[in-house]
């Protein structure tokens, strides 16, 4: 017989005026290779069909299923119960808008973030797709890919002290990583100053507390610390130039 697992799950349905936030307990017998994907679906199908949560790929690839698992933001689908104690507490991620129970709206948040950092290649080149592609060194392609691996799951944002303090505003590590990705890419013609306009604020890189809760929880193990450091260095320098630029231009 497998272990008896106790799941303490946050319940609240904002669409139902009679609903109040509370914790509810469910019990399940552990089976071999059980993940939270298997466990939560069993609870919904066998015990409480109203339980709300989100999964998509069930393979740790799409970022749909992040939640607080015993206090730590992580992807539920790749979390094996074997690695957890008998008592498992699952909460929705903070910062993001709650849809219901364990389901939060990361989609809207990330779309806003993408818009804010203008997350696309800025180029005035006219594309002639019939012409040969521009060359790139494979090492650089790999480096860009490394940063492009973010799955917009939101774990880093949920773990971030600053984002929890000013949830509507603080950009978060995923945004800094994205900026880093475009700064690295020669196809993006933005200047450092233009990047600075986007993230060189107190809601941006200068608001970051540098405690690195973000890097610890990133399920894709993105080098967030390096990105934050790089941005602070480069944009700190840019900030200085920015100020001097203004001083000089006002002198003229």
């Amino acid at each position: 017989m497998g272990r008896q697992l106790k799941f303490n799950i946050f319940r609240y349905n904002p669409e139902d005026s009679a609903s109040v936030p509370h914790m509810e307990t469910f019990r399940l017998e552990e089976t071999e290779a059980m993940t939270l994907f298997i466990a939560l679906n069993r609870i919904r199908e066998e015990q409480d069909p109203s339980l709300m949560f989100d999964f998509m790929c069930r393979a740790g690839i799409c970022g749909q299923c992040a939640m607080l698992i015993n206090g730590r933001p992580d992807l539920a689908c790749h979390t094996k119960t074997k690695k957890l104690p008998d008592d498992i507490t699952v909460l929705p991620m903070p910062v993001f808008k709650l849809i219901g129970d364990l389901s939060v709206d990361t989609g809207t948040w990330f779309r806003d973030m993408n818009t804010k950092v203008e997350s696309w290649i800025h180029s005035d080149k006219v594309l002639d797709p019939a012409a040969q592609e521009e060359r790139m060194d494979n090492v650089l392609a790999d480096e860009i890919y490394e940063l492009e691996r973010c799955i917009e799951c939101g774990c880093c944002v949920a773990a971030c002290g600053k984002a929890n303090m000013i949830p509507e505003k603080f950009m978060g590590a995923a945004a800094f990583n994205r900026i880093g990705r475009f700064m690295l890419d020669p196809r993006d013609q933005r200047t450092e100053n233009e990047y600075f306009e986007v993230v060189g604020t107190d809601d941006g890189i200068f608001g970051c507390l540098g405690l690195l809760g973000c890097e610890d929880v990133c399920p894709k193990k993105l080098p967030l610390q390096d990105q934050l450091g790089m941005l602070r260095r480069k944009l700190g320098f840019s900030a200085v130039q920015h100020i001097f630029g203004k001083v000089f231009s006002s002198k003229k």
Binding site: W120, I121, S123, K125, L127, P129, A131, Q132, E133, E134, R135, M136, D137, N138, A141, D142, I144, Y145, E148, D185, R187, D188
Partner: peptide, 12 residues
């Protein structure tokens, strides 16, 4: 190639 111009970091 279009996807390349838009930013896909294709292996080279």
């Amino acid at each position: 190639r279009e996807m390349c111009a838009w930013g896909v970091p294709w292996n080279r």
